[in-house]
């Protein structure tokens, strides 16, 4: 399956919150939908879910108009929502029934998911008697109980301890392995890097960056190197670079363990390497710079940070 979002516009009253966003995602891959608060992520998701209607643009699945009601979609909203005073099984089965899952099938799926997430014993407990982490897991159960073709996870890891995060990670990886189409929205970049092959960064309702994460990282790291001399702090390394390499490179950023250098055209990596070999200082770290997703995100969406 290939889901394509094309030129979506959405306004609330006179305020346009999406200015023609476009991206695509294929099944068996996870897409990281990123953006600061208010960037338009939730609105985009709600348009995908047919909760909001776009003012302009379209969503296609395999080239055809995407009709959400024709597919099973598992949605885990950022605003966690279930009935606090209802028993876990009762409300999950109700939500499954609303999505058209036969009761017997829903019961089987429920049991399997509760077992997988180690919360079997809470099946007949009221939701508000569970810890926050277990409530979060129940949210995931409601997301997956319909055995969805498309899974949309909005901040699924918020509030989870490391043990539960690991369980959830495994569940998400399993979804990807099952060839599901997974959209993953989170501010926790480490998880996005872990799961997502593709990313879309939204800023003020515009797509400011999209594509394959590895390619993006490579592109962002192009003509950039990392360097640190032995027995030198990054600041001391910066001083040496500013003294001896100014014709080839300049210091772009000083990190905790190294400095990031940007090549000055037409200089190349081998030129820098040759110059370093001529210096008396022993090199501890040297190589191509691969930025973290946080670096890329801050650069693209951190205009007001």
């Amino acid at each position: 399956m290939k889901l394509e979002v094309k030129n979506l516009h959405k306004s609330f009253e006179d305020r346009e919150v999406l200015h023609g966003i476009t991206f695509s995602i294929e099944s068996g891959r996870a897409l990281g939908l990123l953006g600061r608060n208010g960037a338009g992520k939730t609105t985009t998701i709600r348009i995908l879910m047919d909760v909001f209607q776009a003012n302009q643009g379209e969503v296609l699945l395999d080239g055809q108009k995407f009709v959400p009601s024709h597919y099973q979609i598992g949605y885990m909203p950022e605003e966690r929502g279930l009935y606090p005073k209802k028993k876990v099984a009762e409300q999950i089965l109700y939500l499954a029934a609303l999505r058209g899952v036969p009761t017997k099938q829903a019961r089987e799926n429920l049991k399997a998911l509760l077992r997988e997430l180690n919360i079997e014993e809470y099946e007949n407990r009221k939701l508000d008697t569970l810890s926050k982490g277990n409530q979060q897991k129940v949210q995931l159960v409601q997301t997956l109980v319909c055995n969805p073709d498309i899974v949309i996870l909005d901040e699924p890891f918020s509030g989870l301890d490391p043990v539960n995060s690991q369980l959830l990670k495994e569940a998400v990886q399993k979804l990807i392995a099952q060839n599901k189409l997974v959209i993953f929205s989170s501010h926790q970049m480490s998880y996005v890097e872990e799961f997502c092959e593709d990313i879309v960064i939204l800023n003020h309702g515009d797509v400011v960056l999209s594509g394959n994460l590895k390619q993006i990282k490579k592109e962002f790291g192009k003509n950039q190197l990392i360097l640190n001399f032995s027995n030198c702090s990054p600041q001391e390394t910066e001083e040496i670079v500013n003294h001896s390499l100014t014709d080839l490179t300049r210091v772009k950023e000083v990190k905790k363990q190294f400095v990031v250098l940007e090549l000055i055209a037409p200089a190349q990596k081998k030129d820098v390497l040759a110059r370093l070999a001529s210096l008396a200082q022993e090199v501890e770290i040297f190589g191509d710079y691969e930025p973290t997703l946080t670096d890329i995100f801050v650069q693209k969406a951190g205009d007001e940070a």
Binding site: V51, P77, G81, L82, Y83, L95, L98, R99
Partner: peptide, 12 residues
Amino acid sequence: SNRAIEILVTST
């Protein structure tokens, strides 16, 4: 208020 509506409106 308990945000159950988030799930409900996407389910039906």
